[in-house]
Design a protein around this nucleic acid. Structure first.
Length: 314
DNA sequence: CTGGTCTCCTGATCGC
DNA sequence: TGCGATCAGGAGACCA
């Protein structure tokens, strides 16, 4: 669900309620949403072949119980809750994950699919509410990190953050791959934070066809794309993110950027720039919407004289 | 190595 | 109204 703007907006709405607070109790209601050091890659329950591996035991401190929260960091779509001790919890929201802060004395019944909760206290030990992690579809999860080095190691696998991407950095990443630009943008090791919505929105603004091989973009196109990515992400952040179905920030408010989408979810409707009917394509297993007029198909030399269609119309 | 496909899971929506 | 098929904002595993 959430891409960079939604995660960053969650971070900002969570920050005043978490930083400086102490976790007095943590509850993990489903062990299989947490990944600890020593668990198989991706989590003990997330790999079919290793499904039956025994989970490692978790300590109270692994879930930050007894720890004071120093700050909230974000890289791409990942949010890190970092304690004074250097321990951290890395949160992936996946498609339907949600972090919510509930005030002290909140009596609302717990919704279904809550997988973890943290009880907070302020510096004087008074009740400071609770943090709740909910994720119906369970594509998200928690990564337990025991040191700043653990966090640095995980983030080393991510590309540069999309919110501040420069043409220079983007060009370097894109030159290394022949995949369609849309697929490259969705790969978090290329650039961190762009998902299906903002990939389509950025490519439209930059007037680039989503099937264009990444290494064939001109310098001008890469510069336009970097600017478009930053623009779209900032616009969305200013609007509190996009709420298609599930997304709410940490205080329960929906975003408004879905009303400003130029192409995402608008196949069959007129292009906002030229009026041509927007087309839906299937690219990298993901629905992709583009304007056939504003984003013309790249002219490619046919390797060996045999053309191969990269795009399938739906 | 690279890049394409499958899969994990729940729930909303649509067509019949 | 009921029911099955299809589709979702992500990303790791697996395969050629």
């Amino acid at each position: 669900m959430p891409e960079l703007p939604e995660v960053e907006h969650t971070r900002r709405t969570l920050e005043p309620h978490l930083v400086g607070r102490t976790v007095v109790a943590a509850r993990l209601l489903r062990r299989d949403i947490a990944v600890a050091p020593g668990d198989p890659p991706g989590g003990f329950s997330r790999s079919r072949t290793r499904r039956h591996d025994a989970p490692r035991r978790l300590t109270r401190a692994d879930l930050l119980a007894g720890e004071r929260i120093a700050r909230l960091d974000r890289r791409g779509k990942q949010l890190a809750i970092v304690a004074d001790s250097g321990r951290a919890l890395l949160v992936h929201l996946g498609m339907t994950g949600h972090l919510a802060w509930r005030p002290p004395g909140d009596r609302a019944p717990a919704p279904p699919h809550v997988h973890a909760t943290w009880t907070l206290a302020d510096a004087r030990g008074r009740d400071a509410g609770r943090l709740i992690f909910r994720d119906p579809r369970r594509f998200g999860g928690l990564w337990i990190l025991r040191s700043p080095e653990d966090l640095a190691a995980r983030w080393a696998a991510l590309g540069p953050d999309a919110l501040t991407i420069t043409p220079h950095d983007l060009a370097a990443r894109l030159a290394a791959t022949r995949r369609p630009i849309k697929a490259a943008l969705l790969d978090q090791s290329t650039i961190a934070g762009v998902g299906n919505i903002y990939a389509d929105e950025s490519l439209f603004l930059a007037r680039i066809h989503p099937a264009t091989p990444a290494d064939r973009l001109t310098a001008d196109q890469v510069a336009a794309l970097a600017a478009a990515i930053r623009q779209v992400l900032h616009e969305s952040l200013d609007a509190g993110g996009s709420t298609l179905r599930d997304y709410l920030d940490a205080t329960g408010r929906a975003g408004a950027y879905q009303d400003a989408h130029r192409v995402y979810g608008r196949a069959g409707l007129p292009c906002p720039a030229c009026g041509t009917t927007l087309l839906a394509l299937r690219l990298g297993q993901r629905t992709t919407v583009a304007c056939p007029s504003c984003q013309p198909e790249p002219r490619l030399p046919r390797a060996g004289g045999r053309g191969r269609r990269v795009i399938t119309r739906r």
